[in-house]
Write a protein that binds this DNA or RNA. Structure first.
Length: 554
RNA sequence: GCGCCAGUAGCUCAGUUGGAUAGAGCAUCGGCCUUCUAAGCCGGUGGUCGCAGGUUCGAGUCCUGCCUGGCGCGCCA
């Protein structure tokens, strides 16, 4: 409807300009929005106010001219008024809303999809947790966010690849190896000092047990270094498998896993560094090699090759992001824990040095989840070995609830997740509130079919009985859906979809409480069935966009 | 010290990228089942939008300075 109104206003401006009522060198972009207060009509525009300075007339006078020039041949408008400092408030005719509903139903399953992305390819990298331990609740939020972003961008017309970057090289894997080795020795009755940087979790013992079961005591006689390397590798592989299982339990799939180790061993990292050298953005100092990232907006230059010849973590990152570019993505989105925000500048710098358009790269930061149980904080952190795994959350509250809670706040705001509350409070749970709306509509259709009422055909005649306030509110909200999807995609903010779903469910429950869908009035029944069918479809779509199921029965 | 994020109702949070009288859920108080699922609906209570300036027709939103909280500032990963 926004588009429709923008057209009417633009035409009016053109006419006013032609008639000399307004002196316009060009027709400006007309902004139209849903007013907060419904007494201000269905849509309002501030053009008259923004034009005031350009045309040199008071806003209300301009508004008057525009209103007089609007030619509403289709009968779409019921009211047009000038209000306050110069707002133009419009109310559409019921007929216009009914036409809108029909067009929504005709679009069908794909309603809400858009061509915003124009089929461009975007890669979303998320989770990317080190394979040194199971996923914890923070990773869960990243997973829910990344996956929802992927779904959102797909809906907005992008072609999306989901990728997990595996940090399976370097110190942390060695530490895992040392930890497993220590447990391995313990299992063979040896007294050992557990490594100070080791991972104390029980899962490390599980890995050691597995190695004992499969390989016996063979490693007792080998060199420690060799054993540690082996156990790091085995452990990392085992952890990655477990991570994949946890993700599967969360219904999250990836199109690809890129291994840091593989990047290093293939020589790709060396190649990336050579590339930067050839671009003249590397230099040597203090025996190390640096990337001149300050030239691209970073706060300080960054070490790429240490003075002992070892590569830094950043070196792999340069390579990985360079590889993303080489794969031809039009956009790159990285979902990171907020504690990594300090890395944004250096990655941007590296991409800029590689001639990548800075707008093509975005980082979505996911803030800490503070987990509480019975109102008391649950401590987290792999170091302490005392953390709540994603798996425990899923087992406790289920994937739908977990996903929904992770997405209930914008991702860069801290989130409090109380497990007991999530479980206990099921009666007033927002997830169920939305799902219940979907279920109720399914119930309406069950009722209709029991009474032998046929699926209504889509026609103008059919919806002609719609027009009360509850019905119109629903159509208005349905109308907003495509804009909502686009805005969420543009802002990379999936939580907006959650809030929309809550609003729509609320509007439906109100409608449901006051209006009977299936009645003896066959025309009205058919009309309302069409309406709620559209509502069901959109609620279902919104839920699926955040990865939450939409049940037919509860 | 520098940088990033946040500060909105008792609590948890939205706020359509600068719009009109700042919203929702929870909590609390009071109503509503002869009706397609009451996991629901309707109403009441509740606010110095951290503080102070500035920008303009108009600021929760933008700019500056301060206050508070979280995080980050390695030849760690």
């Amino acid at each position: 409807m926004k588009e429709l109104l923008r057209g009417l206003i633009s035409d009016a401006l053109a006419m006013a300009s032609e008639q000399g009522a307004l002196e316009l060198s060009e027709i400006p972009v007309v902004e139209v929005e849903v007013p907060r207060d419904s007494s201000h009509g269905d849509l309002s525009s501030n053009v008259a106010m923004t034009l005031a300075r350009v045309v040199g007339k008071p806003p209300r006078a301009i508004a008057k001219i525009i209103v007089d020039c609007i030619s509403d041949e289709g009968g779409d408008l019921a009211e047009k008024e000038i209000a306050g400092p110069g707002f133009l408030n419009f109310t559409f005719s019921n007929e216009a809303w009914r036409r809108r509903l029909l067009s929504i139903i005709e679009v069908g399953e794909t309603y809400g999809s858009s061509g915003l992305g124009k089929g461009r390819r975007v890669q979303i990298e998320f989770v990317s947790a080190n394979p040194t331990g199971p996923l914890h609740i923070g990773h869960g939020r990243g997973a829910a966010t990344g996956d929802a972003l992927a779904r959102l961008l797909e809906t907005a017309g992008y072609e999306v690849d989901r990728e997990y970057y595996v940090n399976d090289a370097g110190v942390q894997i060695t530490n895992l190896g040392r930890s497993v080795y220590a447990r391995y020795l313990e299992l063979h009755g040896r007294e050992v000092q557990f490594p100070p940087d080791g991972y104390p979790g029980d899962y490390v013992i599980d890995i050691a047990r597995r190695i004992v079961a499969e390989e016996g005591a063979a490693w007792l006689d080998r060199e420690e270094e060799e054993a540690v390397a082996h156990m790091g590798e085995t452990g990392g592989r085992a952890m990655l498998e477990r991570i994949k299982e946890d993700l599967a339990a969360f219904s999250i799939r990836f199109d690809g896993f890129t291994s840091e180790k593989a990047l290093r061993e293939s020589g790709a990292v060396a190649e990336a560094i050579a590339d930067l050298r050839s671009r003249g953005v590397m230099y040597e100092a203090d025996g190390a090699e640096w990337f001149r990232s300050t030239e691209f907006g970073d706060d300080k230059d960054r070490t790429v090759v240490k003075s002992d010849g070892e590569l830094t973590y950043f070196a792999s990152d340069i390579c990985y992001h360079r590889a993303k570019l080489a794969r031809g993505y039009d956009r790159i989105v990285d979902v990171w824990g907020a504690d990594h925000h300090g890395y944004i500048k250096r990655i941007k710098a590296c991409l800029a040095a590689l001639d990548c358009d800075p707008h093509a790269f975005s980082v979505v930061l996911v803030q800490i989840v503070s987990l509480t149980r019975d109102g008391r904080p649950v401590r987290m952190g792999k170091r302490s070995g005392e953390f709540v795994s994603l798996r425990e959350i899923i087992d406790e509250v289920g994937p739908d609830l977990a996903r929904f809670f992770f997405l209930m706040r914008k991702s860069d705001a801290q989130l409090e997740f109380d497990l007991e509350l999530a479980r206990r409070q099921t009666a007033e749970n927002p997830v169920f509130y939305i799902q219940y709306a979907h279920t109720r509509i399914a119930g309406i259709f069950r009722q209709a079919s029991e009474r032998g009422i046929p699926e209504p055909e889509i026609s103008a005649v059919c919806v002609s009985r719609l027009g009360n306030a509850d019905e119109l509110s629903l159509i208005r909200l349905l109308d907003e859906f495509p804009d909502l999807v686009e805005a969420s995609a543009r802002a990379l903010e999936p939580h907006r979809v959650v809030f929309y779903a809550q609003r729509l469910a609320g509007e439906f429950h109100r409608f449901y409480a006051r209006n009977k869908c299936v009645s003896d009035d066959r025309e009205l029944t058919a009309a309302r069935l069409l309406l709620v069918k559209a509502v069901k479809q959109v609620i279902g779509r919104a839920l699926s966009m955040v990865g939450v199921s939409a049940p037919e029965r509860m």
